[in-house]
């Protein structure tokens, strides 16, 4: 058994990822407890404002995940490291997941507050575009056979798609929307401390959870690739020996 065949970074992740998972679990458990039980309801929305503690972290983590995908894609085009490509692929899958969940929790929050599950305002539209871009990215990767070409094309697509991120963020400042403006911005913080603490706990917890999931997913994609490659070689050696005998 020669474990050193596995990439050094992947082995490092295996050693340290648990700390991220544990920290994420702690933050989110505390956030859930404070958010659901130990924080006051909002003066205007009442109890239903508690949806903020799950929706807002999901939404900002979607943007974080795509930013990782964007940064990773540039890095890949520069260094051409297949492990970086595995990370990009992992980040894209997670962006799709977090974006979808942010949209769904947003709809569940929208009905009792706005009186609409969905509306085509600038924030909601640009956010669903983020989901479409990520789905397009993941689809593209399935249609290209050559791994190097797949990684290159995908990286270019991810970099192009990044223009949507500032649009998502600033949509509520630039256009007329039903969605409220940013609560934390240059104007200051528009959330009082009692409600800010669970939001921060969940936000930090969700970011940690994302980094943990990114590590696990990167490992997964890398190991699948590695096994495929090695099995392929073994198979050919097997054929070779058969042919020789």
């Amino acid at each position: 058994m020669n474990k050193t065949m596995i990439n050094r970074v992947i082995r490092k992740i295996q050693r340290y990822k648990g700390w991220f998972g544990g920290a994420a679990a702690l933050c989110m458990m505390a956030g859930l407890y404070v958010g659901l039980l130990a924080s006051p309801p909002d003066y205007y929305q009442g109890e239903v404002a508690r949806i903020m503690y799950v929706h807002v972290p999901l939404a900002h983590t979607s943007l974080l995940a795509y930013t990782v995908l964007f940064g990773g894609s540039i890095w890949y085009l520069w260094k051409r490291d297949p492990l970086v490509d595995n990370m990009c692929h992992a980040a894209a899958g997670l962006t799709a997941l977090f974006t979808l969940l942010a949209l769904l929790t947003g709809m569940i929050w929208g009905k009792p507050t706005w009186n609409a599950w969905w509306t085509w305002d600038a924030r909601l539209t640009s956010f669903i575009v983020l989901l479409l871009i990520t789905i397009g990215y993941l689809m593209l990767r399935t249609f290209i056979d050559d791994p190097e070409r797949e990684a290159r094309y995908a990286a270019v697509l991810a970099i192009v798609g990044f223009v949507d991120l500032p649009i998502v963020h600033f949509s509520v400042e630039w256009w007329r929307t039903l969605h409220q403006p940013q609560s934390i911005s240059m104007r200051g913080v528009s959330i009082s401390s009692g409600l800010l603490i669970p939001l921060m706990l969940m936000s930090v917890g969700m970011s940690l959870l994302f980094s943990y999931m990114l590590m696990v997913r990167t490992q997964m994609l890398y190991l699948v690739n590695l096994l495929d490659a090695k099995k392929g070689r073994l198979l050919s050696q097997f054929h070779l020996s058969k042919a020789e005998s």
Binding site: L36, P41, Q45, G46, E47, V48, R50, I51, I108, W109, K111, P112
Partner: peptide, 8 residues
């Protein structure tokens, strides 16, 4: 206000 607990 209504709790809307189902939504939460």
């Amino acid at each position: 206000l209504l709790t809307h607990y189902g939504f939460v």
